[in-house]
Structure formats: structure tokens, C-alpha cells
């Protein structure tokens, strides 16, 4: 491990943390809003939840956790100057993100095929809005990962790109952690 990682330092640009914590607070409000309105119509929320496939949700959780792990390994490779290994790790993280997206599109399609849409009831309104906004974050995150991979193709000194790469990694981990709570609230907790 490099001395850089051992020092007390803010990973990435300070600005990314303002954005990340802002986003996490907005999602925090989403979670509380969902739990608040759930308490008024518990039966409807519980019955609707039964129509979600927990297996798809769990698969997507593992895919995002694994992608985060690849990003951690990629950043470790960056700090060791192993450009090629870093690129491979970030590419694998991107593929895990793609896997998440494919499962989600398939899941949306399955629901719509059964006539379950945004207007079906309050539970599905929250389901589509929250997972939809998260999906948008995923697409942005995949674009960020792709940019990071492209940056690693150039021969810029890695030290110059470290803050940029750490910022991208921080954003991707946020996409992962927001899904962990969405999975629990929407799919698991009765």
C-alpha cells in the first residue's frame, strides 16, 4: 500500500463529497417518505411487495457489490502504477454494472407485461420512481467508469489523474450503497 493511502486525505476532489453526501441525503428523504406512507397502508405495500422478485433484487445487489470490489482493486492497481491491471478491473466493474442494467430492464419489462406500472398504486409509484432515479445514477456511473478506463489508456502520469479517478470511484460506490437500502426497503422488509 502506498504512503498516499495511509495519510489522512480526502479521496478524490472535495467537491465530489459535497455532491455524494447531498445525493445520499436526498435518497435518505426518499427512504423516510416511503416508510412514512407505508405506515398508512401497510396491507397494500405488503401485498404489492409480494409481486417483486426478491431473487432479481438479490442478484443485482451482488452484482453491484462485486463491481464496487473491482473498483477498489482497480484503485489499488492505480496507486501501484499498474495501469493495465487497473483498466481490466474497471472494465470488469463496468460489465457488472451492465449486468445490473440488463436485469433491471428485464424486471421492468416483466412488471409492465403484467400490467404493473407507475400508476398501479402508491407502492409501485415509489418503486418505479426510486429505482428509476437510481437507474439514472447507474447510467451516469457507467459513463464515469468508461471515462476512467479511457483516461488509463493515455500515458498521463497517474499521480495527476489520481484525484479524478478517486472521485469516479467514490461516485460508483455511492450507486452501490444506495441500492443496498433500496433492495432492503422495496424487496425484503415486510
Amino acid at each position: 500500500m502506498s504512503s498516499l493511502a495511509k495519510e489522512k486525505h480526502i479521496p478524490g476532489e472535495a467537491g465530489i463529497w459535497v455532491f455524494v453526501f447531498g445525493d445520499m441525503c436526498i435518497f435518505g428523504l426518499f427512504f423516510v417518505t416511503f416508510a412514512y406512507y407505508r405506515s398508512f397502508d401497510l396491507d397494500l405495500f405488503q401485498q404489492s411487495q409480494l409481486q417483486l422478485n426478491q431473487n432479481w433484487g438479490a442478484l443485482n445487489t451482488v452484482l453491484l457489490l462485486t463491481s464496487s470490489w473491482f473498483v477498489v482493486m482497480g484503485m489499488s492497481a492505480v496507486r501501484k502504477g499498474l495501469r493495465s491491471l487497473a483498466r481490466k478491473c474497471l472494465s470488469l466493474a463496468w460489465l457488472c454494472g451492465l449486468g445490473f442494467g440488463i436485469v433491471k430492464v428485464f424486471e421492468y419489462g416483466e412488471k409492465i407485461e403484467h400490467g404493473i406500472t407507475l400508476t398501479t398504486n402508491d407502492f409501485f409509484m415509489y418503486y418505479y420512481i426510486f429505482t428509476g432515479i437510481h437507474f439514472l445514477h447507474l447510467i451516469i456511473g457507467m459513463a464515469v467508469l468508461a471515462y476512467m478506463i479511457l483516461r488509463l489508456r493515455h500515458n498521463n502520469p497517474l499521480a495527476n489523474d489520481l484525484a479524478l479517478l478517486e472521485s469516479g470511484a467514490t461516485y460508483w460506490h455511492m450507486v452501490d450503497l444506495l441500492w443496498i437500502i433500496l433492495f432492503s426497503l422495496l424487496y425484503l422488509i415486510k
Binding site: 493511502a5 479521496p11 473498483v71 460506490h173 450503497l177 443496498i180 437500502i181
Partner: peptide
Amino acid sequence: AFFKTRLVIIHFMEVKHAP
């Protein structure tokens, strides 16, 4: 669930090395 997000924040987001 929040134990999991804490692990992500502290270890993966490297907040353990942050101010």
C-alpha cells in the same frame, strides 16, 4: 442493511483514511 452501507462507506469509499 445499514451495517452493509457502513462497510462500503468506511472501507470501499476509503473514509477510514479521510479526515
